[in-house]
Design a protein around this nucleic acid. Sequence first.
DNA 1: CAATCGTGGCA
DNA 2: TTGCCAAGATT
Length: 366
Amino acid sequence: MSAPSALPASPLQSEFAARLIAWQREHGRHDLPWQNTRDPYRIWLSEIMLQQTQVTTVIPYYTRFLERFPDVAALAAAPLDDVMALWAGLGYYSRARNLHRCSQAVVEQHGGAFPSTVDALAELPGIGRSTAAAIASFAFGARATILDGNVKRVLARVFGVEGFPGEKRIENAMWTLAESLFPKDGGDDDISAYTQGLMDLGATLCGRGRPECARCPFASDCVANVTGRQRELPAARPKKAVPTRRTWMLVLLDGASVLLEKRPPAGIWGGLWSLPEAGDEAALEKRARAFGGARELEHLAPFTHTFTHFKLEIEPRVADVDAGRPGARLEAGDSETEWVPLADLDAYGLPAPVRKLLDSLRGSLL
DNA sequence: CAATCGTGGCA
DNA sequence: TTGCCAAGATT
């Protein structure tokens, strides 16, 4: 076990864990909904939801999810559509698909009990190295370090790690550093406090905006604080141009029912229900006719939805089913479609902008 | 290994 | 208003 060659040795390395554990016990968070349990199911669920997602966003989803699926067997037995509906709005929907697959793997391959080692956990869908370490350390007291966004920020500042942490070489160095800092001894409670302390320090005192260095247990040793470079560490992500895509969405109404189309299992909004789309006005008119819609498409106000990697300009169109036309209310093509009463939309997993669009429409129609 | 994959909050 | 990115994993 040697210090990472790319990083300078710090006198802090031997004291880091003990100081962090003490700080966590005194000043860390102890009452989040997924704390004060060693149930690997609850811990796993929270860790998956918290991937790239802030605590305040997760809490209501977590509560609802646990009510509906109180244990891994209940989740494994549920239809994927039900899981997607509960996940809708939380984003990164591959997490929900992998969550469902993972629950079934736990039931079918592990007898319904989560494995207790980092390596076995990391074999499961949706569980990578850091999430495996979080679950294993919280639920089973395993001696494995996490490395999430909080830890990267703390390490970059305290130890002065240069370079963008998303870059492979920098991330590798941080894994080595994080492992070298893990407490050499201590029981399960110490390990939990340590792992939680890494997260708490990054999420509370050492946030991205204005770190509260005066309250930090590492203030006197922290490279960023001592050199006044809190704003420059960790290095920012390299900027990239954000491309714009454009899509036409069809709100096809039959009375108080709307036509939904299930999205492909992979790609953006994979596995959610959405509105039928087309790449231009004429193609959407053609699709509307194929579904039994009237010829005239009413224009609604276009709007833009911004993703991390691109902007999507949405051109919404509304049409009614042409009741007098033979073959009205068809379900054409090989895509999966359903007519859904507007009052039942809550049971369907819709993309956030589609949810907003239909909610506003429902308000004006009813 | 760099790109992909959501959404909402906040500076 | 715009930019930035949060308890990352997968391909």
